[in-house]
């Protein structure tokens, strides 16, 4: 069946199976920045924005995205570049597998709560797991990025 998604501000028609998850449809259609991690919404690397809110695409049926706006990191390149500079300056990049999903979630936090305090930052991003960094450098980078935006 066909679904219509406004992806990164472009209208697209995708042919999907009723049982297919959005993650598989996106990767199949070359949106490879959206990544497979845990298969059950535990790790956050498959995050996309659905109408500007972060959701795990590994457990969202593609059909449910019909008629909605989806944003992947390809849709926020300028912002991701900016966030990337903050990560770089704090040494917060390691394997990077989770980084595009992190950029999306941080961007969404900025839209929702630009003055988030330390605890709010941690709580907002708690679903974005990282096995590499120990979180401290990421936290510093996100804090400074948010601080400089407002």
């Amino acid at each position: 069946m066909k679904i219509k998604i406004t992806i990164n501000e472009k209208d697209k028609i995708f042919e999907v199976e009723p049982s297919e998850y959005l993650l598989d449809v996106l990767r199949r259609n070359n949106y490879t920045s959206v990544r497979r991690g845990c298969d059950n919404t535990s790790c956050g690397v498959c995050t996309v924005l659905l109408d500007d809110k972060p959701v795990p695409s590994c457990s969202l049926l593609a059909l449910k995205a019909n008629g909605h706006r989806i944003t992947t990191v390809e849709g926020i390149q300028e912002e991701a570049h900016k966030i990337g500079l903050y990560f770089g300056n704090e040494g917060a990049d390691q394997c990077g597998y989770c980084n595009p999903s992190m950029a999306l979630t941080v961007y969404s936090l900025k839209l929702e709560n630009p003055k988030a305090n330390e605890q709010e930052i941690k709580e907002y991003l708690v679903g974005n797991l990282c096995r590499c960094t120990g979180y401290v450098a990421q936290h510093e980078a996100i804090k400074k990025y948010l601080g400089d935006q407002s």
């Binding site: 990767r27 490879t32 920045s33 990544r35 497979r36 992947t72 990191v73 390809e74 390149q77 991701a80 570049h81 966030i83 990337g84 500079l85 990560f87 770089g88 300056n89 040494g91 990049d93 990077g96 597998y97 980084n99 595009p100 992190m102 950029a103």
Partner: peptide, 21 residues
Amino acid sequence: HRTPSVDGLGIMKGRKAYTDD
């Protein structure tokens, strides 16, 4: 010196980088 990772920006921006890509 505190040098940012050479590939940090491209990876943050979601460039093809990993095996399945």
